[in-house]
């Protein structure tokens, strides 16, 4: 029984890991050993192609755009989301339920359905093909997640600590800044990491917004085609792993909070 169990798990582990390892080998192959008449399973490894890829494509620019758009969007989410989460977690007021659920329901929005209005709106403000538009789109997309994750962590902080501070004369904002935020740091970090990953992955809005200058990594991949070389898979693999390793590090950092983050606080553990 235990042997079958371990065998099944190992098989699934191979299915998960093997395509990634193989794709890493694509990044290390010369172009003519990727799409060949007969697939090549034991290629010659080289990093010489990298110099050519970096010379021909503004890869560091893609990376910089991703970094700016993602970190900017996370900053906006936290700036607007933390106060909102605090109000939802700690105050009783009319319409709290409805506002909370409205925020959550924006998660269910189909990106394609809002793509045209967003395109027109950004066009109107001359923001198309800028990192700012990406930042705003990613922030809008992740706001619901950030608010709900942080709200869930805030709800666990005992009221007594705040009550004591309040009797000492601390204002509500002061309590939020000096007590609540430090105490729910794990929640804030989890929310930030998950928002960052989703922003890094975003494809549809990015495809519509970026057309030359603002390409981040996710859509830059789609550029490596055309021309006589066809789709340049070694460049795609190289860029994919430039995004993969930072994400892997972030996820290891929050691995015990991951399920809670992905379910917006609904599943603990």
């Amino acid at each position: 029984m235990n042997a079958i169990r371990k065998l099944t798990l190992s098989l699934w582990a191979i299915i998960c890991a093997l395509p990634i390892i193989w794709f890493a080998s694509i990044a290390l192959r010369p172009h003519n050993e990727i799409i060949a008449p007969q697939p090549i399973y034991f290629p010659t490894f080289t990093t010489e192609t990298w110099a050519k890829i970096f010379a021909e494509w503004p890869i560091m620019n893609y990376f910089k755009n991703s970094l700016l758009a993602v970190s900017g969007s996370v900053f906006i989410c936290l700036l607007l989301g933390i106060p909102a989460a605090y109000a939802l977690a700690r105050y009783k007021f009319k319409g709290r339920e409805d506002i909370g659920f409205y925020i959550l329901s924006t998660k269910m929005m189909a990106p394609a359905a809002v793509a045209i209005p967003m395109f027109v709106l950004f066009g109107h403000f001359h923001l198309l093909d800028t990192v700012w538009a990406l930042m705003l789109a990613y922030a809008a997309m992740n706001m619901s997640i950030v608010v709900w994750i942080i709200r869930s962590y805030m709800m666990e902080i005992p009221h007594e600590i705040e009550d004591a501070a309040r009797t000492d004369g601390a204002s509500d904002l002061r309590i939020l800044w000096s007590i609540i935020i430090p105490m729910c740091m794990p929640g804030i970090i989890t929310a930030a990491v998950i928002a960052a990953i989703f922003a890094m992955n975003e494809y549809l809005f990015t495809l519509i917004i970026a057309s030359q200058h603002a390409y981040p990594l996710s859509v830059a991949l789609a550029n490596f085609s055309g021309g006589s070389d066809g789709i340049i898979y070694n460049a795609i693999a190289l860029v994919a792993f430039m995004a993969f390793f930072p994400v892997l590090l972030l996820v290891i950092l929050i691995q015990n909070h991951l399920s809670r983050g992905l379910t917006m606080g609904a599943v603990k553990g």
């Binding site: 700036l79 106060p83 109000a87 709290r96 506002i99 925020i103 359905a113 809002v114 809008a140 997309m141």
Partner: peptide
Amino acid sequence: PYFMLAPAVIFLLGITLYPGIYA
């Protein structure tokens, strides 16, 4: 609490209510 919620809600209305009306 409404002041605390307003920025996030206004921002979200910008990507839900506005696109709905425009579409």
